[in-house]
Simulated assay, not measured.
Amino acid sequence: MATTPSTLLRTARDVAEDLAADAITRDRAGRPPVDERARLREAGLLAALTPPGQDRGADWRTGCAVIREIATADSAVGDLLARHYVHAWSGRFYGGPHEAALLEEASVREQWLWTGAVRAPAPEGEPDGPDLVLRPRDSGYVLTGRRSVDTAVAVADQIVLDAVCAATGEVLVVRIPPRARGVQVETAPDRLGQRVAGAGEVVLDRVGVKPSQVLGRRPDEEEAAAPFTALAEPALRLALCHVGLGIAEGALTEVRDLSRGGRAHRLPGEDPDLLLTYGELASAAHTASAVVDRATDLMARALATGGLLDAEEPASVAALVATAETVTSRAAMHITTRVLELADAPGLDRFWRNARVLTAHRPAAHRLRSIGEHYLNGSHRAVAAAYL
């Protein structure tokens, strides 16, 4: 039976409390998230965070609330769960409803962990050629190339990738089991932050791809994408906004508890300027939360509309997501930097490192220009990022 939103959120809080207990130790170790995957699976979160269906899955608002709860305790695990949830929607974003339903049922039954790296359409193409190529054969395709993956590269059950078909030039979205023949993974244990997320590269050497593993076609131009398909890229960016909020809120909560316990550099009762600082930081977090929540509501309505989505609506969703991303990135970096000035406690630096890694590849200037274009000209072009 489907889990109610309130029950799912209680489970998420219990898992978050468990993760917070050893977050610093696991961050320092920087190992692949084998134990973290087991904790999520045991709690039922991998099965619960799939698209909503009859007696299964989670609606968009609830899914994002779970991601944010987990990210507050451990943003690397929140990152892993955010990408799992969005990539579990891939059957709907790129394929047909019947195939998507079968895939989601299998995901719930097997408690799959999803990850992926789907490129957004490049405005000017790829000057160096595609990094992943599919070549047809009698029983499907063979896939060759390599791609960076931000989470769970060594522990996922399904990796969603896009690749160019050598015969037709089409860009196809496929799912690959990491333990399939010809797949190798190279982990990245020395990351600055998000160390437990399990980032790395997947190397594919003539990996067999069955027709059932082809989720659908990804248009090579933004304007050609079906309205519902166009939601895939901003959906992930919005889920990651909840991870960024989790980082900011987790940092602020931890340093507040240090101040209350008398372990910070300055005590609130002795320094009224400290109250001003906390007011500023709390306001920044509340402002980001308000914008992200508004974008989450708009995305939830668009996803619920499904195939009846208006052609212009994805651009409005993408513009608001870009706004949420801009505000959240600034808030997360500002808050995690300032808390280091308020206290000097073991592990407090992880919040800044995690925020830095999460936001480093999403330049604000590009987003702001796209937001301005949509606001001024009503452009229907989506606000794109490099990868999903």
Rank of each mutant, 00 (worst) to 15 (best):
D257M: 12
Q184I: 12
G44Q: 03
E222I: 09
H286R: 15
G269Y: 12
S370E: 03
G91N: 04
D257C: 11
A101D: 13
S329E: 05
R41D: 12
T277G: 09
D55S: 15
L9R: 13
A345L: 14
R37K: 14
S148R: 14
A345P: 06
A311R: 15
A43D: 07
Y375P: 07
L102H: 14
D18F: 06
G78S: 05
G30P: 13
A331N: 03
H286Y: 08
H87Y: 12
E17W: 09
D344S: 15
A365F: 04
D349P: 05
F351W: 07
A239V: 11
G193R: 11
E233I: 01
A154Y: 01
L342K: 01
N354T: 02
R338G: 08
A43L: 12
H334T: 14
A20V: 00
H334C: 13
L80K: 11
A2H: 12
D55H: 15
A199Q: 07
E222K: 04
A385W: 05
G145V: 10
V339I: 14
G347A: 09
L298P: 05
G96F: 00
L348V: 09
D55A: 15
A304T: 07
A88D: 03
T62D: 01
R195C: 02
S139W: 10
T277I: 13
V160S: 03
A199T: 04
V203P: 06
A386T: 01
P219A: 11
R137G: 10
E221Q: 13
V66A: 03
E280A: 10
G96C: 04
L172I: 04
R41Q: 13
E313Q: 14
P97F: 10
S90I: 02
A345M: 15
D157N: 11
I70G: 00
A197Y: 04
A88N: 03
E233N: 06
T359R: 06
V207D: 02
L358K: 06
H87C: 10
T11F: 13
E17T: 13
L192H: 09
W352Y: 14
D310I: 02
A304F: 12
L103V: 07
L340S: 10
A288Y: 06
R237I: 03
V34R: 13
L376T: 06
A180N: 01
G125R: 06
V77P: 02
S289G: 09
D344L: 15
R119W: 01
R191Y: 10
G372I: 08
A382T: 05
E42F: 09
A163Y: 07
P177A: 12
H334Y: 11
T11D: 11
G307P: 01
A331I: 04
G44P: 08
A300Q: 00
